[in-house]
Computed example of a mutant assay.
Amino acid sequence: MHDHDHSQGHSHGHDHDEGHDHSHVPQVTTRNERKVLLAFAITFSFMLVEAIGGYLSGSLALLADAGHMLTDAGALALSYLAFRFGRRAADQRRSFGYLRLEVVAAFVNALTLFAIVLWIAYEAWHRLTQPPQILAGPMLVIAVTGLLVNLLVLWILNRGDTDHVNIQGATLHVLGDLLGSVGAIVAALIIWLTGWTLVDPILSLLVAILILRSAWFLAKRSLNILLEGAPEHVRPDQIGQHVREEFADEVRRVGHIHVWQITDRRVLATLHVGPSASARIEDLGLRISASLQQRFQIEHSTVALDWSDEMMVCSLSTREAAE
């Protein structure tokens, strides 16, 4: 995490109005929380039904789907807890509050998906060498019910903040589980019509490959945030080029540029600029910050006006820049 120096030794180019809100409390509403909690209750309940049905029918496709639903339930529970804790206000030890918990939850979701893929692959290989007896009738009924349940949960989640990394993590779990239900339905129909039981582990492997793709996408995205990597839509060189072009008459140089994310939607940046002799330095930092917010959606920027023997730090939030 980058430390923004607001010590009294610096001269601030913009006075902070005490009426401004500098608490970095996330904008995620309780609407997302309620939807994730409802999705968890539905998923966990049917997971128990599917696990029992998979055991009694002997279907790996159903057992794999139940195992995936277990991670779905865990993912949704983590998402809910992340939302709850993430709304806690910032304090002296955690100046950005608990916002990163939701990103950690998304990363844990991705790891559980990887674990499920390995389990499905192991069980499928075992069943390919020793095909078990499978009851196609009960398998089909439970698989169709599971598909309907997953469609309901997916509909609930899609009525939330679908661009949020935590909601996306939960949605990817449910999508993978929905594919598992489809695979189980296809396997049950083929077994019922032909008696070919090897289709059960084969389709389970196909579903595992699709789950693996989703897990990789989610892990890559959440890990980039945890490592404070630059967001996809903006890079440090783009910020430098923009400032040099937008303020060509007032800025001689731009350097020490850092851009990162606290959460999926909260982008921060720091940079040093060398003002020219004709620069209007009393509000240069304010104008640069406002320009970065408008061009790159950077919520909070720290612009340091840098001379060889002194530095002026202008720390500005989006709200201040807009005003």
Rank of each mutant, 00 (worst) to 15 (best):
G176I: 15
P275G: 03
V25K: 14
Q297R: 12
G13K: 07
H68Q: 07
G67V: 12
L48G: 13
E245N: 11
D249T: 13
I42F: 13
V254W: 11
W125M: 14
V49P: 02
Q168E: 07
H300R: 10
V174Q: 00
I211Q: 03
V207M: 11
L218K: 03
L179R: 06
L284K: 02
L205V: 15
V49E: 05
L147K: 04
L152V: 15
I120P: 01
D306A: 09
H272G: 05
L227A: 12
F296E: 06
V149S: 05
D306Y: 10
Q168S: 04
V108N: 06
R287W: 05
K220N: 03
H4L: 01
I116A: 15
R295Y: 05
A304T: 11
E232Q: 08
L157M: 12
I120T: 06
L99E: 09
A106G: 00
G146C: 02
D72M: 10
D91M: 13
R93T: 09
I185F: 00
L76K: 06
F46V: 01
W216T: 08
W155R: 07
V141E: 03
A110M: 07
L189N: 05
E102Y: 08
R319F: 14
A121N: 09
G195D: 00
L63H: 03
R221P: 13
D5Q: 04
L203R: 00
G97P: 09
A41S: 14
D3F: 12
A64E: 00
E232D: 12
K35E: 06
L56W: 14
E246G: 01
A41T: 15
G160H: 05
A321H: 03
T30R: 10
R252G: 08
G13A: 10
A75P: 04
W260N: 09
F46K: 01
I239Q: 13
L101H: 04
G13D: 11
L56S: 14
G180L: 04
P236Y: 02
G195R: 08
N109P: 09
I134Y: 08
I281F: 10
